[in-house]
Design a protein around this nucleic acid. Sequence first.
DNA 1: CTGTTAGCGCCTTCAA
DNA 2: TTGAAGGCGCTAACAG
Lengths: 371, 371
Amino acid sequence: MTTVYDVARAASVSTATVSRVLHQQGRVGPETRERVLKVIADMGFIPNAAAQSLSRRRRDLIGLVGVERNVDTPFDIEETSLLYPDLILRAAEHALRDTGYSLLLAFLSSDEATFGRIRSFSAKVDGLVISEGILPEAALERLSHRVPIVVLAGRHDGGGLDVVAVENLAGIRALVGHLIDVHSCRRLHFIAGPPDSPDATQRFEGFRAAVASRRGARIVGTGQGDFSERSGARAAQALLASAEGQLPDAVVCANDQMAVGLIHELQAAGVSVPGRVAVVGFDDLYPSRLLDPPLTTVRQPMRELGARGVARLLEKIANPDLPPQVEVLPTELVIRTSCGCQVAAAASKGPGRRPGRSTKASHPAITSEPA
Amino acid sequence: MTTVYDVARAASVSTATVSRVLHQQGRVGPETRERVLKVIADMGFIPNAAAQSLSRRRRDLIGLVGVERNVDTPFDIEETSLLYPDLILRAAEHALRDTGYSLLLAFLSSDEATFGRIRSFSAKVDGLVISEGILPEAALERLSHRVPIVVLAGRHDGGGLDVVAVENLAGIRALVGHLIDVHSCRRLHFIAGPPDSPDATQRFEGFRAAVASRRGARIVGTGQGDFSERSGARAAQALLASAEGQLPDAVVCANDQMAVGLIHELQAAGVSVPGRVAVVGFDDLYPSRLLDPPLTTVRQPMRELGARGVARLLEKIANPDLPPQVEVLPTELVIRTSCGCQVAAAASKGPGRRPGRSTKASHPAITSEPA
DNA sequence: CTGTTAGCGCCTTCAA
DNA sequence: TTGAAGGCGCTAACAG
């Protein structure tokens, strides 16, 4: 491995000069610079990143910590909610281009060993973007004293932490409102996600509140899932078994993947969707618009989540004294046909159209300081 | 920031002893160990990763370099082939759990600056898993002298490089054979992927060869796409415009996402799939089985690709003198209904079933040394 | 079993 | 404009 010393010797200069040339810090004579540059090219010299990190006290690395559910079947697409974190990840990586930082990954489930893992993980990076639901807030708070942190969450109470949040509640409210107002659904059923997921519980609460606020509408049943497609299918079976011909008007699933399993299972049992029962989801994953029927759902701004999280983190790294801030990104009701709407027929033609999508309603983003 | 020196002083030992305790290298008295451990816990000491890297000459980092197409619309799901690399990535990350290594990411398109980027990227890691099609083979070869490399590819001629490859050719051959033998397709149309993608060109060649080897069957047309869903839709329009009622018996798409766009467009034009024309894809992405009709395609072993790539790389890091090796992973024909089969009706019921999938054929993996 | 010490490769202040 | 030299925090011989 060639070092600055090798280069310095070959170019008859000191290592300080090599370093200066390397970082275009001026203060180097033109021909000296040329000479050094040539030697660097000839020797194929690449500075040792670890030595640089040690000396400059920065690693040029950003850590992204995502949740991994169902540890047994790590990424069986039918068992886990795979696509959601991936978009965040891609957006985060993209936001880092040309900043000199690289993205370091870790997917963790929330077990006992997690805090320790994240601690040592945090030693490798200059900052951390971490999903809610992996570490309790107290642990996050402790961690944030050691390294800049931005939390990706569905809640808005930062509690002293920097948070980029998503408007889960407004989204589910719009969804329920649509079912009740437009489709006159009265008897609603909910398929919940895993209780240890903040998103899941928040959506459940939002659903309850939204239904409670509407006269005439009521919750006729609840199923328990874990965000996986298969658990949605199981929930459908439970629903069919218990309903005895008295199916609800609509089933609201805590995420899209459960809706996929649920719809397949209902259809297999001869229950028409949305003819007999409306089904809606939450997330707006890529496959959702390809379903038959295309899924009405709430779009989460996943790319923005990743991009904003990273952007905020870079700000904090540059200026550690920035006061914590909560940023709330809007969700968007995406109306397709699984709710009973018939927008597909009215969809415009042409190469640019998005099959199954035609209507959408959004609410504005809210940015605020935490209490 | 607390250092080993702080810990050593507080525990009245030398830094060497702290280091020994840290790495459970025995040779430390029980009560000394306890004392040091307590101080470490009390002070919340975490060793500086950069200093460790510098001293041990290893970064504990593995780099994964993926291709990014359509730089303008970085991750518009309709524009790019998003899902494929993500599964590889997840599998790679998973294979790294509990090895002490973390996964460092970079998505790059193949432009001029790429080699330089990868060079500096490679300075941060102990080894690189890199997709074919980003760097020319000569550049890869040069890089491999500097850092252990494993290439993920569709070809089997390693040329001195370590390669984990996928049986593209056998897959497309099986696909074409199925169309011809089972569905008596004679007039075949192909939608090609971007010419700069090795996978794309290889599948095209495989398609040509497969058709040529069958009496009676012939290629009646070719469309050009870029792997994106939208380009598949455009290809469908071109096909419809030029076919003049003389549609082919089957359209083979170089990947699933183009098939999605193609099918939607055909259906919008009133052309029944597979009634009027069979359509098949390649990849077996998650959404493909959710389509209407469920897509017949060739499954790429994406998780295995990521897992084997990382596994091989770790071997090379542990033992740099290992001779280069080419490992070929099998693809698998996944028959659903878009080809004209009617397997969906025969699918078994129950929570564990995979909708739309019922039949599959595979060919054995081949492992060999390069020439 | 434990301590001393010389690096690991680069950056950067201080002089010249 | 350039060089000398100390230090970043940790590890690993080598002694003892």
